[in-house]
Structure formats: C-alpha cells, structure tokens
C-alpha cells in the first residue's frame, strides 16, 4: 500500500488517476450547484457588456488600439476568472469535506485535480469571452488567430497555476477575501504585464515581442508550477 514499493511510472499513472477522480467529482458538483460557473459567467458577461457599451471599438484612436484593447481584455479575463477560481478549496473547507479528502487522497493528487479543474474553467471562460470580445471591441489580430490562441494558452496556464495555489493558501486563513487580494497582487502583476504585452504584439503584428512574452509567460508558469507542487503538501496538511 505504501508508495515506496512502486516504480515511478506506476506512481505517476496512479497519481493522475486520483487527480482525475478529483476533477470528475468537482465537475459533477459544479454542474449540480453551478456556483463557480455562475460567478464566472456573470462577471465575464457584465464586464464585457460594460466595456463594449462605454468604450466600444470606435472611441479608441487606431494607434492606441493594440495596447488599450489588450489591457482591457486581460483585465476582464483576470477578474472574471478570479471570481470563480478562488472557491476551489474554500468550498471544501466550508462544507467540511476537506478533512476526509486530506485523509483519503495524496496531497499532490488533490492539487493536480484542482489545478486541472481551474484550467478547464479558465478554458471555458476564454472560449466564450475572447471571441465575443474580439468581435464586439474590434481587436485587430495582425499575427493571426493562432498567435492569440498560443498567448491565451500560455497566459491561461500561468494564471491557473497562480490562482490555484493562492486559493489553497486562503482556504486555510480566516480573513480570506483580503488575503486573496494581498497574495495575488505580487504574483499576478508580472503575469498580467507579460500577457498584455504579448496580446498587444499579436494585435500590432510584432512577432519578436510576442515570442518574448510567450517565453516569459511559459517560464513564469513553469516556475510557479514547481514552487506550487513543492509548497502544496505543507499548505494542505499543516
């Protein structure tokens, strides 16, 4: 029964199977309660409607479009995603299911499962939000749709990793709302800057700048993934 008798491959495949069990459970409970999906969808559509109504595609000078529309897009993605993703561990604590989960699953299986769930949530959000935003706001895509998809994938991955570990930390704290903001800010700020720079490169047609932003986002996401993986068992169990 102990992990020590297993080889690396068996441990990884069993870890992934356990993580997918956590994802399946979270998806099932989410589809029955729709707490995160509703929060996320409501925030995304409200901010999108407000931005497109007040700013729209015609009130921005052509030379400012790339930067301003990119910044607005990532602000909408960031706030909409945070509205749903910070709940992923808090709901386990609030419904008193965290104790049995701690005693039943390996910490890394829980972390991986919650991360995959959050990345899925983010993918759904982007799939609905971004095409609508591009259409309504007239965001030019001079490097093409593929470049935007690559940037969204790299930025979304880093955002998902950061949000998941911050959600785990705040679930163990008492003043959760304030703590989420304080912890998120230094972690999300560089990510947001790289993502906006990359998006404006896609929009203005600057492949070198895009490559630079993609490298920065992938490195940031990778580092956060390793740090989160090392940190999570301590946060989850102590």
């Amino acid at each position: 029964m102990t992990d020590g008798n297993w080889n690396g491959g068996q441990i990884m495949s069993s870890l992934m199977a356990e993580a997918l069990a956590v994802v399946a459970k979270d998806l099932r409970t989410e589809f029955r309660t729709r707490v995160s999906l509703n929060a996320l969808g409501l925030f995304a559509l409200t901010t999108l409607a407000a931005v497109s109504y007040t700013v729209g595609p015609y009130r921005i000078a052509e030379e400012d479009k790339a930067y301003l529309l990119s910044a607005l897009l990532w602000i909408v993605i960031l706030f909409a995603s945070l509205a749903g993703m910070d709940r992923v561990f808090v709901k386990e604590e609030e419904s008193h299911t965290a104790g049995l989960l701690r005693l039943s699953a390996r910490p890394h299986a829980v972390w991986l499962g919650k991360l995959i769930f959050n990345l899925g949530l983010l993918a759904v959000l982007m799939l609905i939000l971004v095409p609508l935003y591009v259409l309504l706001m007239g965001l030019p895509l001079k490097l093409g749709v593929g470049a935007l998809v690559a940037l969204l994938a790299a930025g979304g991955f880093a955002l998902g990793v950061v949000s998941t570990i911050v959600a785990a930390i705040i679930s163990r704290a008492i003043s959760r709302g304030a703590l989420f903001a304080v912890l998120s800010l230094p972690l999300l700020l560089p990510l947001l800057i790289f993502a906006i720079q990359g998006c404006s490169a896609v929009s203005s047609g600057d492949p070198e700048k895009l490559a630079e932003s993609l490298r920065a986002l992938i490195s940031f996401g990778g580092i956060m993934l390793i740090v989160s993986g090392a940190l999570f068992p301590v946060i989850w169990q102590d």
Partner: peptide, 28 residues
C-alpha cells in the same frame, strides 16, 4: 485508518454511490 466523525462530512451534491466511488478512486 478510517474515520467517522461529526466534523467530517461527505459530498452533499453527490449520491451515496457517487461518494463511495469517489473515495475508492482517490484511494486507488
């Protein structure tokens, strides 16, 4: 170990069978 305690609850949004299936899977 196995535990039954008032402070530890099962998932209220799942059926009894789904709860057991989940705990079986995460215990491999």
């Amino acid at each position: 170990l196995g535990i039954v305690a008032p402070a530890m609850r099962l998932y209220e949004e799942l059926t009894g069978m789904e709860n057991l299936r989940f705990f079986a899977r995460i215990r491999d």
